[in-house]
Amino acid sequence: MNLDFTVFTFGLPILLKGLGNTILFCAISIVCGFVIACLIALCRLSRRSFLRLPALWFVEVFRNTPFLVQAFILFFAFPRLGVRIDATVAGIMVLSLYAGAYFSESIRGAILSVPKGQIEAARALGMPYLRAMRCIVLPQSLGYLLPATTNQIIGVIKDSAALSVITVPELSMAAQVVLGESFSPVETYVMVAILYWALTACVAAMMAYFERRVAAAAVATTSESARFATAGKSH
């Protein structure tokens, strides 16, 4: 096996630009995905079936089909409907929807894992449903949510590589550009793999930091409320 190391020097700038795009596109998709996921999760938890069922179908469709096929469908749907769309915009759209479907499962699981008594206490005090969700349930669900979404966020970053097939100019696509000049596929793809690896490792470390902060905040607030609760008893 002959490794051509010159491809490292001229290929790296191109790949780094692609990496930058990957980070940007994934960040946008993850944020949009979360918004979509919150909506979907709330619909799935709703008692009204006209909200619950379409949300369920949405999730099932996106979870039971390959992301690549979803990307193709969206990419070709717009011209068919007469709308001219940029590959990047289409890519971010499909990635957001895909992310949203998976995140919604985590959010739903996290909300369900908050003990039922919490929201019952809030309702008993006269708090309306949405306020109870926002102020009582959602903050508590963060502790359950972070570990689950770390893996899914990393999954979105990895799955975004498939967008290169519909010509979105992210990291995997940049690899094709380098390959067009260098004819060293093994070296190029190994470099690309290492860049993805570095990116996911950074994201994992960042999420671990947030998990620790949330855990510390949880300890602080419980000891806080414990002090508050017992303060009234001392005389």
């Binding site: 096996m1 990393i154 970053i157 990895k158 799955d159 975004s160 590589a161 498939a162 290169s164 995997s172 690899a175 596929p185 093994v186 793809y189 190994v190 690309v192 793999a193 993805y196 690896w197 996911t200 490792a201």
Partner: peptide, 18 residues
Amino acid sequence: SFIRGTPLFIQILIVFFI
């Protein structure tokens, strides 16, 4: 760690060319 941190898309291409 490598398998879990890199896209399957890239892994497929590496195996195919290596």
